[in-house]
Amino acid sequence: MSIILNNVSYTYGEGTAYEMQALKNVTLKIDDGEFIGIIGHTGSGKSTLIQHLNGLMKAVSGEIYFNGRDISEEDFDRKELRTRVGLVFQYPEHQLFETTIFNDVCFGPINQGFDKNEAGLRAFEALRMAGVPEKLYYQPPFDLSGGQKRRVAIAGVLAMKPEVLILDEPTAGLDPKGRDEILDLIAGMHRAKGMTIILVSHSMEDVAKYVQRIIVMDDGQVFLDGAPREVFKYYEQLEKIGLKAPEVTYLMHDLKNRGMAVDWDATTVEEAKQSILKLFQ
């Protein structure tokens, strides 16, 4: 199973004064079970890209295949696609609307056509997966803390049992602990369920620590695509498009320039630590 993008382009406001090409001939293959990070500065086309993956936006040209089928085909069920490729928007807690947390999480499964019982079962499972304490299930969602609300919103998407989960900056506005908790939660789902995960992030440190593959977007195009170590080797090019490598990568380069034989493409604190300690053995 996979998602394939072939030469996908998208233009906002075509034929108006504000015409802007947001995606330019993007070709990508996303395999089952991958944990991918998408990085790029604001306006690089990240958000447009992920909205194409679940069919919320329609490519102006090019094709998108989900499990081998072209999603633009007449008889392709795009509503179903949205439930199989779950998308968690930025600040997802702003979309909560029901009187209780539980009812809110049921919204997705009920839209899928499940009866109350099945929807409820799925909601329970999703809430548990998202780590929402059980005593909160029948509370209104609006009184929760920011981190809790976000878990509920993520559960709202998980309840549809998507095969692919896309999250647009799921840690925006959270404090350091809240950020780590959400990222650990996502990594846990990837490990335990083998879910395909696509994480849009502004934090190079987070991406380096968690994902297996990084897609760098710039000006509507795929700028780099590879494992974190590979991608962050090009930190000078990344700086040119307004991005950076993780702090430790710079440190390791610095150490290497000072004549220390360290592993200079380390991207996480743990990797850097191991490599530096090796010097002193």
Partner: peptide, 9 residues
């Protein structure tokens, strides 16, 4: 769009 991503119509 966020609600459509949760299957709303």
């Amino acid at each position: 769009k966020a609600q459509m991503a949760r299957g709303a119509d």
